[in-house]
């Protein structure tokens, strides 16, 4: 028996055309960028591969894990599901922009204090997601935090510690 996998019908021809880059201006962690972006580049790949902002992680590239969570105009999104060219005029905040050594975001400090991670790979996404969650203002209880953080998987299983960290910041109300 022979088996044949065809390339996607009709794409072979179009594929030969170079991807024409398009201009877009994005403010990333407070710094304005004028960028030439190929239309097929996601915000996640733009950050990681072109801007050197590897704090934002790729865990699935399909909107299924939350590792790539960043804040877009203050709202949490999966950056793997956004084409970067579509974000002209937007403001993006990544984990690098939330805080750095010496001026940590309260969530970053709480994550360290509560040991809310192990391998650290889901952590930037968890922290950005938690910042978004707090800004949304819907979560009050531990149960609500758990429910509304469920888009961010942690294979190391740090969930109870993450909930402790997020609740502490939520209750103190000192998230910027």
């Amino acid at each position: 028996m022979t088996h044949h996998t065809s390339p996607k019908a009709g794409t072979a021809h179009a594929s030969a055309a170079p991807m024409a880059s398009m201009g877009a201006s994005l403010t990333i962690n407070g710094t304005p960028h004028q960028l030439l972006i190929e239309p097929w580049t996601t915000l996640l790949d733009l950050l990681r591969e072109q801007l050197g902002l590897t704090g934002t992680k790729k865990g699935c590239d399909h909107g299924q894990c939350g590792a790539c969570t960043v804040l877009l105009d203050g709202r949490r999104i999966n950056s793997c599901l956004k084409l970067a060219v579509s974000l002209d005029g937007s403001e993006v905040t990544t984990v690098e922009g939330l805080g750095q050594a010496g001026r940590l975001h309260p969530l970053q400090a709480a994550f360290i204090e509560h040991d809310a991670f192990q391998c650290g790979y889901c952590t930037p996404g968890q922290i950005c997601s938690a910042a978004g969650l707090i800004a949304e203002g819907h979560a009050r209880s531990r149960e609500e935090v758990r429910e509304q953080m469920s888009g961010n998987l942690c294979r190391c299983g740090a969930y109870t510690n993450i909930a402790d960290a997020v609740l502490e910041v939520l209750e103190k109300g000192d998230a910027r």
Binding site: L53, T54, G55, E96, G99, I112, D115, F117, G120
Partner: peptide
């Protein structure tokens, strides 16, 4: 607390 914590929470 993890000595590599700072590196991990800041990306």
């Amino acid at each position: 607390s993890r000595v590599d914590g700072l590196e991990k929470v800041t990306g």
